[in-house]
Amino acid sequence: MPAVELDVYLFVAAVLFVCGAVCMATKRNAIGVLMGVELVLNGANLNFVAFARYTALGLDGQVIALFVIVLAAAEAAVALAIALSFYNNHLTIDVDRGNELHG
């Protein structure tokens, strides 16, 4: 069985990214969209850490991944608060219903 090399990690990161992007595009539940964002951020993180391990990026990759984790947590908290107040105002979490600003 071959060892897992950089290419494999990059491919996994690509899958995470694409799944997250598709998730953001297709889910109508606001929290589902949030989960898509988390997947995308994780794909990027995996890229950073893999490059940190296999190329000259070194420790920088891990530090950036750490910042991404922190900011993703912050983003999730704010987005969830927004989703909850959206739910309070519309009595649904369906993002397609938030269309009053159509003009």
């Binding site: 606001a30 929290i31 989960m35 988390e38 993703a72 947590a73 999730a76 909850l84 979490i93």
Partner: peptide, 19 residues
Amino acid sequence: LVYVGGTLVLLVFGVMLTA
């Protein structure tokens, strides 16, 4: 700790409050 134990619990919590 942060993602799985924190953020996702928050998300599931949000799901419970809105579903």
